[in-house]
Nucleic acid binder design. Structure first.
Length: 445
RNA sequence: CGGGGCGUAGCGCAGCCUGGUAGCGCAUCUGUUUUGGGAACAGAGGGUCGCAGGUUCGAAUCCUGCCGCCCCGACCA
């Protein structure tokens, strides 16, 4: 993509309303534009990142054997009356009337709708286990939206719902989700720690929140630093192997890690003192086994192997997709701008032409650009007639992890510069090798 | 929803207290010179001062109401 042909409205000055770094950079780098309190338009660059995250989440869910579908944003109030939540949910639910005076709502979550789909078609344990999920916009009319997409009213979320015939099998679904979430965050380039969460009035210990450590996080968290060393890395995961799932979950839930909601000072004291940590965290996902709350209320029954009709054992599991952008930036930035992890970067690398208009330099940039595109990569070529400083500032702000700098001086020696946004390290090498290097970096992703 | 603050050019702001027909920086456009880390000079365009009403000869400025946005709190992926 040529920058001169793209739509990238970067801001030199920080908009007054943005308080935290991720919000400021999202506005300045032209990722989003606020449409109303807690509601945002996704500009081209922001949309690219959002789609990348969505794609990774989607791929990992399907690897885990979960089935995608798509439910609407608008829902009829009837299902919510059936579950009893229409009156309970309160002002956070955006309620709408259509022209016939029927009560609709903009879905804040989808337990009712998925339970209705499930009960319409599934009646036997032979069709289980089943996990259905979608990635869809939600609306929760927060009292106080803030921090940009970290705490918007409209947000994109992957929400999945597991259905099983009994508790044991539902807990396998729970483990499967935890493993798939660990893989997802790792691919995105984030360290998200599963922490024992508060299960609320339903009770039970089977809920974990995934938190990204960041000063601007809204939750206070306490953990054993040993958990930071855990990595799935290239470990092969077989989702059919419930023992493997269980052992991975055991590994990640062994070190102490809790939010202030569930924090237990006595237990925390057992952690060796040099490993006791407390900090702030951003919640980017939650898994939750809640049993038969909705299946009983909405009569979602299945026949088990003994011929008995039992309510389905359910869990709901969410990843805040749009919120992840904010979390990624909070965890990956410096004073010049964003530093995207390779897994989600909107463009694989930037190409900076230091002498736009110089025939040889222009030709070298185009050759680099086309060479990368031929390998299936997506470079952003800054072909504006600007000074080097302005071009570098833009590249630093929008945070592409790699930059190739092309100028007449280097070309005289047959080299271009390859610079890492994260480390700032620069290496001179022939253009063809720069292309190969970029290709190799992205090969496994 | 309670408390506080803000709304003036695309962005960041001054002017308001003490009323007299709108200004600065950046950005934009034209031209010239420039070009290895946010260029210089010259010129130009762009605003019903959030909306409505009131006071006044006259309102960005004073008064009233409304709308929007931000911050702190209680609630949340």
């Amino acid at each position: 993509m040529r920058l001169s042909r793209y739509f990238l409205p970067v801001l030199k000055e920080t908009p007054a309303e943005a308080q935290i770094v991720s919000h400021r950079y999202m506005l300045r780098a032209g990722l989003i534009k606020q449409a109303a309190a807690g509601i945002y338009s996704w500009l081209p660059l922001g949309l690219r990142v959002l789609r990348n995250i969505e794609r990774i989440v989607d791929e990992e869910q399907q690897l885990a054997g979960h089935i995608p579908l798509l439910m609407p944003t608008l829902q009829s109030a009837d299902l919510w009356r059936e579950s009893g939540r229409y009156d309970v949910y309160g002002d956070e639910m955006l309620r709408i009337k259509d022209r016939q005076g029927r009560d609709l709502l903009y879905g804040p979550t989808n337990e009712e709708m998925i339970t209705d789909i499930f009960r319409s078609y599934v009646s036997s344990y032979r069709d289980l286990p089943l996990t259905l999920y979608h990635i869809q916009w939600k609306f929760r009319d927060e009292m106080r939206p803030r921090f940009g997409v970290m705490r918007g009213r409209e947000f994109l979320m992957k929400d999945g719902y597991s259905f099983d015939v009994d508790r044991d099998s539902a807990l396998v679904a729970y483990d499967r989700h935890m493993v798939s979430y660990l893989r997802t965050y790792e691919r995105i380039g984030l360290q998200a720690i599963p922490m024992r969460a508060d299960s609320g009035p339903i009770g039970g210990e089977y809920t974990h929140e995934f938190l990204v450590l960041a000063e601007t996080g809204e939750s206070e968290v306490f953990y054993d630093s040993a958990i930071l060393d855990l990595k799935l890395a290239d470990r092969p995961v077989n989702y059919a192997d419930t023992d493997q799932l269980k052992s991975i979950v055991a590994e990640w839930t062994a070190p102490y890690a809790r939010t202030d909601e569930t924090h237990d000072a006595a237990l925390f004291a057992n952690v060796p003192s040099d490993r006791q940590r407390s900090s702030r965290g951003i919640e980017v996902g939650q898994i939750f086994y809640f049993g038969t709350k909705y299946s009983e209320a909405m009569n979602a029954m299945v026949t088990n192997s003994e011929g008995k009709r039992v309510p389905a054992e359910m869990g709901s599991h969410g990843i805040g997709v749009s919120r992840l952008l904010g979390a990624i930036i909070e965890a990956n930035h410096d004073d010049k701008g964003i530093i995207w992890p390779e897994g989600v970067t909107p463009f694989h690398c930037g190409i900076v032409n230091l002498r736009q208009g110089d025939i040889e330099t222009d030709a070298a940039c185009v050759a680099l650009h086309d060479g990368l595109v031929a390998l299936g990569l997506d470079p952003l070529y800054d072909d504006r007639d600007e000074r080097a400083g302005a071009k570098f500032a833009t590249m630093d702000l929008i945070g592409l992890p790699w930059r190739i700098t092309v100028g007449p001086k280097g070309l005289k020696n047959g080299v271009v510069e390859l610079t890492s946004r994260r480390t700032g390290e620069t290496e001179e090498l022939p253009p063809e090798q720069a292309v190969e290097r970029i290709a190799r970096i992205y090969a496994g992703l």
